[in-house]
Design a binder for these strands. Structure first.
Length: 228
DNA sequence: GCGACAG
DNA sequence: ATCTTGTCGC
């Protein structure tokens, strides 16, 4: 049986039950409060057992940064495939809540419903915050697809247990496709449309590209602040 | 039983 | 994810 960093045993069966219950609350319909004007990216960097979460809000049309928020958090759960939300979810939510501007949607570096119990970290964060979320990952956790998209702009659906849970999207030549899946309050179709519009030459959509870069910068500052 | 396995 | 040198390609 796995344990937390402090040695407390983890009951995965119980957490699976929680995921199945929360999965019923996922809304797979577009429910943005306003036309999309601001979209935020959420990603983390790690320094030992500490997570540095970065939430970067950008203008949906220009992809220019509007605001950045960070949150340092001591990890209280190990990495276990299928249970990523319990490890990274808290830090992500704290960073999202520090943002003063209110994005219409959040892009999260994790899967949405493309998950064994249809509740990846992006979906769980969406349900817990009530915010629209989209999962963007670089590797498949579960599911199958027909053919890998080869040309930038193309995509193929990802299926799991008879359900279309996401899509493999070729965002850049020379790079493996990214996996897009609805997190909460959005359809796959809209999720693809939004991510597509956020691609600006990088493999990852700009909000996530920026969040990833900022999380690491913050981590570096933290490192040098320690050795002096 | 054997592999696969988001970040 | 992180540890890590050099290396190939746009």
């Amino acid at each position: 049986m796995p344990k937390t960093p402090t040695g407390r045993p983890i009951d995965l069966k119980k957490l699976e039950a929680l995921q199945r219950r929360l999965a019923e609350k996922v809304i797979l319909e577009d429910r943005f409060k306003q036309p999309i004007r601001v979209v935020a990216g959420v990603d983390l960097a790690f320094l030992g057992e500490t997570a540095i979460a970065a939430c970067v809000a950008v203008d949906y049309n220009s992809m220019e940064t509007i605001e950045e928020a960070f949150f340092k958090h001591k990890l209280k759960f190990p990495y276990i495939p299928g249970f990523l939300s319990f490890r990274e979810g808290p830090a992500m939510i704290f960073a999202m809540k520090k943002l003063r501007v209110k994005p219409q949607v959040f892009l999260i570096n994790a899967h949405g419903i493309a998950h064994p119990r249809f509740l990846g970290c992006a979906s769980q964060v969406g349900v817990l915050t009530g915010q629209p979320t989209i999962g963007v990952a670089q590797r498949i956790l579960c599911g199958t697809y027909k053919e890998e998209p080869k040309e930038p702009g193309q995509w193929t659906t990802l299926t799991y247990k008879g359900r279309t849970v996401g899509a493999l999207y070729k965002s850049k030549k020379g790079s493996k496709p990214i996996i897009i899946s609805p997190g909460h309050k959005t359809t796959l179709k809209t999720a693809i449309k939004i991510v597509k519009k956020c691609i600006r030459g990088h493999k990852l959509p700009e909000p996530l590209q920026k969040a990833h870069r900022q999380a690491n910068k913050e981590k570096m500052r933290l490192m040098e602040k320690m050795e002096r």
